[in-house]
Structure formats: C-alpha cells, structure tokens
C-alpha cells in the first residue's frame, strides 16, 4: 500500500554527527615534498637570475625576495599541517562523505546510487609511500565529484571494491 507519512526532521540520519576518518599521516610527507619541489624551483630561478643578470637592481632586491619567499614557504608549511587535520572521509550505508579546507571548509556527500564510476590513482611519489587517491565521479559537469587523496593503497582498493558492489 502506498503511504506518504510526514518526515520527522529529527529522526533523519545526521551528516554532522558522523565521525570522519582522518587520512594517512604519510600524506603529510607527500604534501611537504610537493611544496619543497615548488620552492626549490622558485629559489633556483631567483638565484639563476642573480648570477646571470649582473645588474645593480637585481642584487639590491635579491635578499628581499629570498626573505619573502622563505616566509611564504614557512607559512605554506604551517598551513598545510593545519589543513591536513581538517581532511577526512566517512562511509555510511547509503553515501560517502569527504571534507577538507582550513579557511574554506567544504564537506561533500555523494549518495552511492549517484556514483557513475570510480578510479584509484597513484602518483609516482605516492607509490613510494604506499598511498593512493580515490576519485568518485557523478554525472554531469557541475562538480560534486570527490577525490580523496592520502589513503593507503589497501584502504583505497578496499573502498573502491566496496563501492563497486554498492553501485551494482
């Protein structure tokens, strides 16, 4: 028989009370390596400019640039440590939740029945640390896709398999 009872908002499962699982600590190392690579290139360019452009204004400005860059570098490191703590995911029986962002916190939930396909990716560095990222794609181009990075490879494959069975 068809029923259409009123829904009691208080009895609906709550997204906000779900405890998020934090991602692997090893991912922090990857973040650091990525930042270091960026800054090695930046510092390298600045030093190259100084050695090859032997003009007065270059040497005047050189130490200012180095100081600013170092400051930004330290700030970005602190930032990524703090924002690392905000990253987390959770699985419920009907959907998957992923949250991230320090200044701009965003928590996305994708119901399993809306998942189009899944992908597990491993970058060169992530492979060395035994980590992987899981991409969850929904239909359309409006966004709403998830990409959870910093999962251990076993975790990623396990979730991937679990979701695959849920979709079908």
């Amino acid at each position: 028989m068809f029923t259409n009872l009123e829904i009691d908002i208080d009895t609906i499962p709550k997204v906000e009370s779900v405890k998020l699982i934090s991602i692997s600590k090893r991912y922090l190392k990857i973040l650091f390596i990525n930042i270091c690579i960026q800054y090695v290139i930046l510092f390298g360019v600045v030093i190259l400019v100084k050695t090859f452009l032997r003009e007065e204004w270059v040497s005047n400005v050189f130490w200012y640039v180095i100081t600013v860059l170092s400051l930004v570098f330290v700030l970005q490191c602190i930032f990524s440590i703090l924002s690392f703590k905000k990253r987390g995911y959770a699985l419920r029986t009907q959907d998957i939740i992923y949250a991230k962002g320090l200044l701009n916190y965003k928590k996305t939930t994708v119901p399993f029945i809306r998942i189009q396909h899944l992908e597990t990716k491993q970058s060169f560095i992530a492979k060395k640390f035994g980590l992987a990222s899981l991409h969850v794609y929904t239909a359309g181009e409006s966004g709403g896709d998830l990409s959870i990075s910093g999962l251990t490879f076993e975790e990623a494959t396990r979730i991937n398999e679990l979701l695959t069975t849920k979709i079908n």
């Binding site: 320090l102 965003k106 359309g140 409006s142 966004g143």
Partner: peptide
Amino acid sequence: KIQAVATKQTVFQKLRNIASVEVYTASKV
C-alpha cells in the same frame, strides 16, 4: 535529481555559525 550535496563554511562564518549549502545536479550547481 540531485547528484551530490555539500556544505561550505569559511573561518569567519564558523565564528558566526553560518554556512552555505551547494546542491549539484548533472547540469548545474
């Protein structure tokens, strides 16, 4: 027809207990 739902909150909004909701369909948000 909703594909995914998200809440968004900046640090300033956190202080005031305010947040925004984004609703994704296959065409737009």
